[in-house]
Design a protein around this nucleic acid. Structure first.
Length: 835
RNA sequence: GCCGAAGUGGCGGAAUUGGUAGACGCGCUAGAUUCAGGAUCUAGUGAAGGUUUACUUCGUGCGGGUUCGAGUCCCGCCUUCGGCACCA
C-alpha cells in the first residue's frame, strides 16, 4: 500500500491533533456565544461496535461542514449519541449470555473511539445514549405527555407480528411484507397494543411538507406524501336487506359510480361476517373461506394480488340511491386495514371489481361514459373504464360530469342520511409497544380496580429490572412479563396491588426527540429547557440516509408538531434542511470470477473496518477519498486503487507544502508581482472561489478536484521562493482543512502559527483577481468551434469579431461566405453565422 | 401496475442559468530519476481520419423537435436502480 510520505506518520500526527482539539475544547458549543448558531446533525447511530468505512461517509460529510462552518464564524453545535436500545443487545444476551447493558456500553466505547480516531469533531460533553436511565426517563416522560392528551392509547387491532423477533412491528417497519430487521415474513395477528395517534397529525404532516419541500430531497418528500396517502371521498351506508337497522359503511372516492354498484364486498376479517351469516346454511363455508383467505395473505401476498377470490354470503344490501338489492360477498382483495374494510363493487369502473365480477358472473353496469364517447356495452367490455366522464343511468345525477356529481353527492349524502364526505389515509397509528426487554418500559400500571393508570411523573423513570433477574428466552410476550420484581407494584391511585405494563417502546420513539436533548443534554430536571432548545433548534443541516424516509423522519416530525402544540418547542418542523447522503459500495467477488459493486455490509463480506484502516493509512486518507470519490448525495465506490490515489495525492500535498514551509505567508503585495506570479495569485483566488462556492453547495467532490488542480499548478510553478508561491501555500492549507484536518493542522503549526487553523477565518477571495482582465472567448462558426481568442474582459462584439477574423482557422471558415448574424455571450462564446 | 431517480471515455466521475463535453482521479503508454521498486517527477491518453503538425468528422441510452447553439429544454421510446404494491 502506498504511504503518504516517509516523514509523515499519519496515525501519530492525527492522534496528537485529536488530543489537542479535545484539550482546547475546539468542538464545544456554547449557548452564550455571540456568533450565529449552526446546528449540524447526523442521524442517531446505533452503536454497532465495528464501524466500517461505509458508516463513516455520513460523519465525514458532517465533519467537512462542521469545520467549514466553524471557519466561517458560526457557533456550531455538532453532537453525537447512541440509539442504543434495540434487539442486537438482547440477542447477544440470549445467544451468549452477556449483559445487554455491558455489551452495549462496550460497543459505545468502541464506536466512540473510532469516531475520535477518525477526527470527527463532536461536543462530547453532550453525548447521550437512549438506553441509559437519564435518557429514557424523558422518553417515558414524553410518553406520559402524549398519554395525557389522548395521543397514546392501547387498543385491540390487527398487528404485524414478526415470529423471528418475537414482537409486533409498526407498519413502517414492514418492508414488502417482511420484518425490516430480519426479513422474516410478518404475520397478521389480532392483538392489544399501544399506539401513538400519529393520524391526528396526518394533515399537518402532509401540509407542512410544503415548508421543507425545497430543502429536502424530492423523493423523500414524495415517499412521505404517498405514505400518508390522503384520499378524499364519501362514506356510504348500505342497509342490509331484512336486517333491521343493520348496515355496512363503505368508503369510496368514486361516488359518481354509485348507480353502477352490483355487489358489495367485505374483507375476510370483517367483524360483522359472523353475525351476518348466523343461521344461514352457507355459514361454515364462509368461515372456511375467511380462514383460508387470511392465511393465504400471509403465505403469498404476491399471488393474491392477481387472482381474486370470494364467496357469496347469501345476504343482500340495498343501494341507498337506486334502491337496488345487491349481493353481499366476502372477497380476499378487500383490506380490513383500509377505509371501512368493505367496498362497493362497481365492476364497470374499477378493474379489480371487474375481474371479480367476471369470475363470479356478477352483472356489470356501466354508468360513466367518456365525455366525448358513449356508454360502454357491458357485453363488449374487456376492462373497466376508470376515467372520469359523464354520469348516465344515475337517476337525478345523469348528465353531470364525475366532478359535478361527486360534489353534489357530498352535499346530498348528509341530507339524505345515507352518506357523508370522508377522508382516508394510508397512514395508520404508530404501534409503539414491543414485547422485548431492551427498550424503555411503558410507564403504565394496570390495576384491577382502577384500570389503566399512568405512572406519576415523580416516579419516573420506570427502570428496567436487573438483567440477572430476567429470562431472555424468546416468547411471544415481553421478557419483563415473567419478572415478578418488575411486574408487581402498587396502583398509584388506590394503593392496591397492580401490575406494570410489560412492554417496552419502539426504539424509533427514542430517536424521535434525541435532537432536542442535545440542546440541553445534562438537564436532570426536565427533558430540556425551552430556552436552550429555542436557541439551537431547528437543525440547520440534517444528514442521513433515506431508509428512514417514512419512519424516523416522519415520527420525528410528528413529535416536533406535538411538542409545539403543548408549548415545549417553538418550531413545527425539526429539520428544515435535510441532506440524504449516498451509500458506500465495494466489490463483491462472484463464483464465476466476475464481481459486482454492492453496498458495504457485513452480510456481504465486503466491508473495510474503519478502525484498522485509519490505524494503517490515517483518517485523512479515508476522509479525502470518501469526499472525492463521488458526489456526497450519491452512492460511491470504495476501491483499493482509489485509496492509493488519494494517499498519493496527500503525500504530494505534504511534500509540496512542508518542503516549502518557511515561505508560507498570509499576505502578498499584489502590485509588485511578476506576470507569472500574478497568474498564480489569480489561480489561488479562483481556486478559493470555486472551493468556497462548492462547499456551500455541498459539492465536496469537486472541491477536492479543484484542490488537486491547484496542487498540480503549484508543482509546475518554478520559483518556489516567490512570495506568491508562499501565499498560495497558505491558502492551500486553509482550503485543505475541512477535508484533511489533521494534515492541515500539522502544516499550519509548522508554518509557525500557534493556535488551531479551525479558529482562523476562512479566506475571502479577491473578486477583482477572479474577474480576470483577459478572458478567452471561444469562436464558433455556424455553431462549431473554430478557434479561441484572448480579449479584454467585457470586449464588445466588434472587438471580438476583429480578433476572431485575425485567427487563421476562423478566417478559413469564413472565407467566401457572407456573415449573416453574430451572437456574443460576453467573455464566453462568440458564434458567427454565415452562408 | 403506480411513483421516484438515473443512463456521459477502459473505470469513478466533472460541466450554477442552454454557451469550449470529458475537469479531477484511477488505469494505461512513454520518458526521467533511483541499487531497486507497486516510490517520485514529466508528458500523453474519447473514437475515427489526416502530410500524426495545422486540422476535419463523429461523439453524453435510442428516435424526433425547439434554438445561432442542447449532456442540459420539449415530445415519444429503451434500459437500470430504488420505493409502494389489491389503498376502493
Amino acid at each position: 500500500m502506498t504511504k503518504t510520505n516517509d516523514d509523515y506518520d499519519a496515525p501519530a500526527v492525527e492522534r496528537r491533533w485529536q488530543e489537542f482539539w479535545e484539550e482546547i475544547g475546539l468542538f464545544e458549543a456554547n449557548e452564550d456565544s455571540p456568533k450565529p448558531k449552526f446546528y449540524l446533525l447526523e442521524m442517531f447511530p446505533y452503536p454497532s461496535g465495528d464501524l466500517h468505512v461505509g458508516h463513516m461517509k455520513n460523519y465525514f460529510i458532517g465533519d467537512v461542514l462542521n469545520r467549514y462552518k466553524m471557519m466561517r464564524g458560526y457557533e456550531v453545535l455538532h453532537p453525537i449519541g447512541w440509539d442504543s436500545f434495540g434487539l442486537p443487545a438482547e440477542n447477544a444476551a440470549i445467544q451468549r449470555g452477556v449483559s445487554p447493558t455491558a455489551w452495549t456500553e462496550e460497543n459505545i466505547a468502541t464506536s466512540r473511539e473510532t469516531l475520535k480516531r477518525a477526527g470527527v469533531g463532536y461536543d462530547w460533553r453532550r453525548e447521550i445514549a437512549a438506553c441509559r436511565p437519564d435518557y429514557y426517563i424523558w422518553t417515558q416522560w414524553l410518553f406520559l405527555k402524549l398519554y395525557e392528551r389522548g395521543l397514546a392509547y392501547r387498543a385491540s387491532g390487527p398487528a404485524n407480528f414478526c415470529p423471528s423477533c418475537n414482537t409486533v412491528l409498526a407498519n413502517e417497519q414492514v418492508v414488502e411484507g417482511a420484518c425490516y430487521r430480519c426479513d422474516t415474513p410478518v404475520e397478521r395477528r389480532h392483538l392489544k397494543q399501544w399506539y401513538f395517534k400519529i393520524t391526528a397529525y396526518a394533515d399537518r404532516l402532509l401540509d407542512d411538507l410544503e415548508l421543507i419541500e425545497k430543502n429536502w430531497p424530492r423523493h423523500v418528500i414524495t415517499l412521505q406524501r404517498n405514505w400518508i396517502g390522503r384520499s378524499e371521498g364519501l362514506t356510504v351506508r348500505f342497509p342490509v336487506v331484512g336486517g333491521g337497522d343493520r348496515h355496512f359503511d363503505v368508503f369510496t372516492t368514486r361516488g359518481d359510480t354509485l348507480y353502477g354498484v352490483t355487489f358489495m364486498a367485505l374483507a375476510p376479517e370483517h367483524p360483522a361476517i359472523a353475525e351476518l351469516t348466523e343461521g344461514l346454511p352457507t355459514k361454515s363455508d364462509i368461515e372456511t373461506f375467511c380462514r383460508e383467505a387470511v392465511k393465504k395473505k400471509e403465505v403469498d401476498r404476491a399471488a393474491a394480488a392477481t387472482e381474486k377470490a370470494g364467496v357469496f354470503t347469501g345476504r343482500y344490501a340495498r343501494n341507498p340511491l337506486s334502491g337496488d338489492e345487491i349481493p353481499i360477498w366476502v372477497a380476499d382483495y378487500v383490506l380490513i386495514s383500509y377505509g371501512e374494510g368493505a367496498v362497493m363493487g362497481v365492476p364497470a369502473h374499477d378493474q379489480r371489481d371487474f375481474l371479480f365480477a367476471r369470475k363470479y358472473d356478477i352483472p356489470v353496469v356501466p354508468v360513466i361514459r367518456a365525455v366525448d364517447g358513449e356508454l360502454a356495452d357491458e357485453r363488449e367490455m374487456t376492462e373497466a373504464f376508470e376515467d372520469y366522464g359523464v354520469m348516465e343511468s344515475s337517476g337525478p345525477y345523469s348528465g353531470l360530469t364525475s366532478e359535478e356529481g361527486n360534489a353534489r353527492l357530498a352535499e346530498d349524502g348528509p341530507k339524505g342520511g345515507w352518506g357523508r364526505p370522508a377522508v382516508n389515509y394510508h397512514l395508520h397509528d404508530w404501534l409503539i409497544s414491543r414485547q422485548r426487554y431492551w427498550g424503555a418500559p411503558i410507564p403504565i400500571v394496570h390495576c384491577a380496580a382502577c384500570g389503566e393508570i399512568a405512572v406519576p411523573y415523580e416516579e419516573l423513570p420506570v427502570l428496567l429490572p436487573p438483567e440477572d433477574e430476567v429470562d431472555f428466552t424468546p416468547a411471544e410476550r415481553s421478557p419483563l412479563a415473567s419478572c415478578r420484581e418488575f411486574i408487581e407494584t402498587t396502583c398509584p391511585k388506590c394503593g392496591g396491588p397492580a401490575e406494570r405494563d410489560a412492554d417496552t417502546m419502539d426504539t424509533y420513539v427514542d430517536s424521535s426527540w434525541y435532537f432536542l436533548r442535545y440542546c440541553d443534554a445534562r438537564n436532570a430536571d426536565a427533558p430540556w429547557k425551552p430556552a436552550r432548545v429555542n436557541f439551537w433548534m431547528p437543525v440547520d443541516q440534517y444528514v442521513g440516509g433515506d431508509e428512514h424516509a417514512v419512519s424516523h423522519l416522519l415520527y420525528a416530525r410528528f413529535f416536533q408538531k406535538f411538542l409545539a402544540d403543548v408549548g415545549l418547542v417553538r418550531d413545527v418542523e425539526p429539520f428544515p434542511l435535510f441532506f440524504n447522503q449516498g451509500m458506500v459500495k465495494a466489490r463483491v467477488p462472484k463464483a464465476d470470477g466476475s464481481s459486482s459493486m454492492e453496498v458495504m455490509s457485513k452480510s456481504k463480506g465486503n466491508t473495510v473496518a474503519a478502525g484498522p484502516f485509519i490505524a494503517e493509512h490515517g483518517a485523512d486518507v479515508a476522509r479525502v477519498y470518501i469526499t472525492f470519490a463521488g458526489p456526497p448525495g450519491k452512492d460511491m465506490e470504495w476501491t483499493e486503487e482509489g485509496v492509493g490515489g488519494t494517499a498519493r495525492w496527500l503525500g504530494r500535498v505534504w511534500r509540496l507544502v512542508d518542503g516549502n514551509i518557511e515561505g508560507v505567508r498570509a499576505s502578498v503585495d499584489a502590485a509588485s508581482l511578476s506576470a507569472a506570479e500574478r497568474d498564480l495569485y489569480v489561480a489561488t483566488h479562483r481556486t478559493l472561489k470555486r472551493v468556497t462556492d462548492d462547499l456551500e453547495r455541498l459539492h465536496f467532490n469537486t472541491c477536492v478536484a479543484f484542490l488537486m488542480e491547484f496542487v498540480n499548478r503549484l508543482y509546475a510553478f518554478e520559483n518556489r521562493k516567490s512570495p506568491a508561491f508562499g501565499y498560495a501555500l497558505h491558502h492551500l492549507i486553509k482550503m485543505l482543512a475541512p477535508f484533511a484536518p489533521h494534515m492541515a493542522e500539522e502544516l499550519w503549526r509548522r508554518a509557525g502559527h500557534g493556535d488551531t487553523v479551525f479558529r482562523e477565518k476562512w479566506e475571502e477571495y479577491d473578486a477583482e483577481a477572479t474577474a480576470a482582465a483577459l478572458v478567452t472567448v471561444v469562436i464558433q462558426v455556424n455553431g462549431k468551434v473554430r478557434g479561441r481568442v484572448d480579449v479584454a474582459a467585457g470586449a464588445s462584439e466588434e472587438e471580438v469579431f476583429a480578433a476572431a477574423s485575425a485567427d487563421a482557422n476562423v478566417a478559413r471558415h469564413l472565407e467566401g461566405k457572407a456573415v449573416a448574424k453574430k451572437i456574443l455571450v460576453p467573455d464566453k462564446i462568440f458564434n458567427i453565422i454565415c452562408r
